[in-house]
């Protein structure tokens, strides 16, 4: 059987304590364990590099040495489950949240969540935004059954920390400096056209968009947003979505006719 050989080989790759897998041979004079060690190192370094590429702001916040050490622990505990490296690290933010050495940086995992969402947005499908004229054509008596379809790349990351500011300062979008106003920020991440865009959402905006993404009607989403934040401004939030080009379609549900 080949499967046990493969799993023994894979396990030995990620655990230097394990012996070189049985059945390997070399055509050169170099000792087998040295050659396997090179391969072992390449696997881990390659995955650590992949995480560094996907989470540059997170790496900048903690420094390269800390980041690579943390990534190494993650890589050995969470090897890729897919051959697509672009998806590797989706669970890295959760790992950071539970990684004791980062306990003093409770915002770090949320910044990583923002960065993971950026990569997903980058690789999400394209979709053409609705023109404002098309939205203006909606009849006012059909609005209660209206569902907006949002761009496939749109994602929301909510945080108790100013993650948009922290990310912007550590990604070169904004000058690095002290965060004057340390308050919660919810991020909207999307790629309506060529560039991935990150915006801080107004109050209630995250709850609103999360409901829209879940397929709720405009009315249901607005009600949920009002429950989340009493001063939720529906017009301003809708304007933000339309202006960002994130409304890509709509569906109207006919109100159910009451039987006489």
């Amino acid at each position: 059987m080949f499967a046990p050989v493969q799993s023994a080989f894979a396990a030995a790759l990620l655990d230097p304590e394990r012996p070189v897998p049985a059945g390997l041979s070399t055509h050169t004079a170099a000792p087998l364990n040295k050659r396997f060690a090179a391969y072992r190192n390449n696997v881990v370094v390659g995955l650590v590099n992949a995480l560094g590429t996907r989470f540059p702001a997170t790496q900048r916040i903690v420094g390269e040495e800390f980041f690579r050490a943390m990534a190494r622990v993650f890589v050995t505990a969470h090897p890729p489950r897919s051959p697509l490296l672009m998806t590797y690290g989706d669970d890295f933010p959760d790992f950071i949240a539970g990684f004791p050495p980062t306990a003093e940086m409770p915002y770090l995992a949320d910044v990583a969540r923002l960065e993971a969402a950026r990569t997903r947005a980058y690789h999400a499908a394209d979709a053409a935004p609705l023109a404002p004229e098309e939205i203006a054509c909606l009849k006012s008596d059909s609005l209660q059954g209206l569902r907006f379809l949002l761009h496939p790349s749109a994602q929301v990351v909510r945080s108790a920390h100013p993650i948009v500011t922290l990310w912007a300062m550590n990604s070169g979008e904004r000058e690095l400096g002290p965060v004057e106003d340390w308050r919660p920020e919810d991020a909207l991440i999307a790629r309506p056209r060529l560039e991935v865009e990150v915006r801080a959402l107004p109050v209630g905006g995250a709850a609103f968009i999360v409901q829209l993404l879940a397929g709720q009607t405009l009315e249901e989403a607005a009600t949920a947003a009002l429950a989340d934040a009493g001063d939720f401004d529906l017009a301003r939030n809708l304007a933000g979505l339309i202006g960002a080009g994130l409304i890509t379609g709509f569906a109207i549900e006919e109100p159910r006719k009451e039987l006489p």
Partner: peptide, 12 residues
């Protein structure tokens, strides 16, 4: 809903 959507379109 109607007034918010109209206002949103004006803002956008």
């Amino acid at each position: 809903l109607a007034s918010s959507l109209a206002a949103a379109l004006a803002m956008a």
